[in-house]
Computed example of a mutant assay.
Amino acid sequence: MVNLVENGAIVRSGRPIGLFGGGEISSEDVNLVLSRVTSAVAADSGAAALIDSGQIPDVVIGDFDSLAAEYRAQIPDDRLFPIHEQDSTDFDKALRSISAPVVLAAGFLGARVDHQLVAFNTLTRLQDRPCILLGACEIVFHTPPRINLELAAGETVSLFPLRRVTGRSDGLEWPIDDLVLEPDGRVGTSNRALGAFTLEVDGPGLLTILPRTALDQVTQAFLSGQTGRWPARAG
């Protein structure tokens, strides 16, 4: 069940929510996400990809400076939730307005590098809002306190810190134990899974990048509640 405008969140659900952006997104991406979620939320012009796929978004959130008039006219007024401040992106506005165990987000990777960077920034700032970004070949998510996954031996597991972080791993070719990862220092890209692996992180700020085929595993990990969850950042 999806509730709207409850306890400060515009959208609240106990199941995964789909979030769609106006960046690089294919009809395959739209259909893949829609088949796994209970509700479709658009961040401003992300509504266009949904409508082009035959789906009217349940909710549209943003400053509405990029949603073309012909698309906006097809959306009932009670599904439009404008947030007019210009200090954050539409992805930020939408993600902070969703309360769900995990958000599956398409249309935020690819195309412009600056848009990708700010999406990564948003993932780590809104650390209490688990979200998986879907790309053409990979998925990206903010690493929770702990996660257990299984990939084929040799598949890539990349770890990129946006803050100084430490942690432990089991089942990676190059363990991260006793390492300090930081954005202007050591990073953990192009590691490899040996099969089943575990990550434990001492604090928020680490992005995990996995093959796109891991989407369902990661989604189920967040739904299981066994990952733990970072608290909201103060301020």
Rank of each mutant, 00 (worst) to 15 (best):
G107C: 07
A100N: 01
P82F: 04
D128M: 01
A105H: 05
E85A: 07
C137T: 04
D128W: 08
D128I: 02
L117I: 13
R129A: 15
F108S: 02
F91N: 07
L80G: 14
T122M: 07
V102R: 03
G135I: 03
P82C: 09
F91Q: 12
I61R: 08
Q86W: 03
T89W: 07
R72P: 12
I56V: 15
E138Q: 12
G62Q: 09
A105Y: 04
R72H: 10
D92C: 09
F120D: 02
E85D: 03
R72S: 11
D77C: 10
A111N: 15
A73L: 12
S99W: 08
I83T: 03
F64E: 11
L80M: 14
G62I: 10
C137V: 13
A100E: 00
C131A: 06
I98N: 02
I75W: 07
Y71Q: 09
D78P: 11
I75P: 12
I75D: 11
P76Q: 15
G62S: 14
E70R: 11
L134I: 07
V102Q: 02
H84F: 12
A136M: 08
H84M: 10
G107H: 01
S88L: 10
P101K: 15
A119Y: 01
A94P: 05
E85K: 10
I75H: 05
V59F: 10
D92P: 06
I83G: 01
R129G: 11
L104W: 04
Q127P: 14
I56R: 03
A106P: 12
L80P: 06
T124Y: 08
L67V: 07
L95D: 00
R96Y: 05
L80N: 13
D92W: 12
F81C: 04
Q74H: 11
L80V: 13
K93Q: 04
D90N: 05
L95N: 03
T122C: 15
R72L: 13
F108H: 04
I75V: 13
P76W: 09
Y71T: 11
S88N: 10
L104I: 14
A105M: 03
K93R: 08
I61Y: 03
D77G: 14
L123Y: 12
T122K: 02
D78M: 08
L134V: 07
P130C: 01
R125D: 13
A100W: 00
L117R: 12
G62Y: 05
Q86N: 09
I83E: 02
A94R: 03
C137L: 11
L109W: 01
L134R: 02
K93L: 03
R129L: 15
D63V: 13
E138I: 06
L67I: 05
A68P: 14
Q86K: 10
F64H: 09
S66H: 10
V59W: 08
S66R: 08
A119L: 03
F120T: 01
G62W: 06
A94H: 03
D78C: 10
L134D: 05
S66A: 10
R125V: 13
G107N: 00
E85T: 07
Q74I: 01
D63A: 09
E85Y: 10
I132R: 02
S66K: 06
T122E: 09
I98G: 07
H115L: 06
Q127Y: 08
V60F: 15
S97R: 00
V60S: 08
D78A: 09
I98K: 04
A119T: 05
G135L: 04
A73K: 15
S66C: 09
F108N: 02
K93W: 05
T124N: 04
D78R: 12
